[in-house]
Simulated assay, not measured.
Amino acid sequence: MTSTTVPDSAQPSSSLPDILVAAIALIRDRRVLMVTARGRDVIFMPGGKIDAGETAAEGAAREAWEEVGLRLDPAALTEMFTVAIQAHGEPDGRLVRMRVFAAETDADPQPSAEVSALHWATTADLFRCPPAGAEVLRLLAERGLID
């Protein structure tokens, strides 16, 4: 696992706590699964906030089920990296700290009630992503996993 973090000197001082989230990276044909949440115009990694009492892998697996109907075993998820970056739609200095897990399944994802559409994204979709999603796309491309 590697981490992408904002250097301390680049982090604005803020009393707001980081938003801790976990997401899955399901990659097929050099594209990664992303979603559009209802009422939103940007695309996100399938994931969300980690609930109290659950591990990041458990949170990623739960969110995969809730958002795209995939039943994933948290123990089978492999942590890839953590992205820490300005949180989309939050005050300056509030970071989202997203732990990204590689997921594998033969099942076909399906949008849930909170997701309006699925997208198989590449770096050509950077402009459609909030900062954390764009950074994930860049890191996946650097690793040669997506176009």
Rank of each mutant, 00 (worst) to 15 (best):
A117K: 01
A107M: 07
E104L: 06
A103C: 03
S116F: 04
R128S: 13
A102K: 06
W120L: 00
H119S: 14
F101N: 01
A103G: 10
L118K: 01
S112F: 04
A121E: 10
A103I: 00
E114W: 12
A102G: 04
F127Y: 11
P111M: 07
P131E: 15
S112N: 08
D108P: 05
A124R: 12
F101C: 02
F101M: 01
E104Y: 00
T105E: 03
D125K: 04
A124H: 15
A113E: 12
S116R: 08
P130C: 07
T105S: 07
A107P: 11
V115P: 07
C129P: 12
L126M: 14
Q110T: 09
D125V: 00
T122P: 06
D106W: 05
A113K: 12
D106Y: 12
D108L: 11
D125C: 03
T105K: 06
D108R: 12
P130I: 13
R128V: 11
H119C: 14
H119I: 07
F127A: 12
T123W: 01
S116Q: 09
D106T: 00
L126H: 14
T122I: 04
V115A: 04
E114L: 10
L118N: 02
P130K: 06
A121V: 13
L126V: 07
S116P: 08
T123Y: 14
A117G: 08
A121C: 06
T105H: 07
A113H: 07
D125E: 05
T122C: 08
P130S: 00
P130D: 08
A107V: 06
P109W: 02
T105F: 09
P109L: 11
C129H: 06
Q110W: 06
D125G: 05
V115E: 10
V115H: 04
L118C: 06
L126D: 13
A102E: 12
F127L: 05
A102R: 05
D106Q: 09
P109S: 05
L118Q: 09
A102F: 00
A124L: 14
D108C: 11
P111S: 01
D108A: 10
S112T: 01
T105W: 02
A102M: 06
A121L: 08
P131V: 13
F127K: 08
P109H: 10
P131N: 13
H119L: 15
P111V: 01
P109M: 09
A103R: 02
F127G: 13
E104H: 02
W120N: 10
H119G: 05
D108T: 15
A102V: 00
A102P: 01
S116H: 02
A107T: 14
D108H: 10
F101A: 00
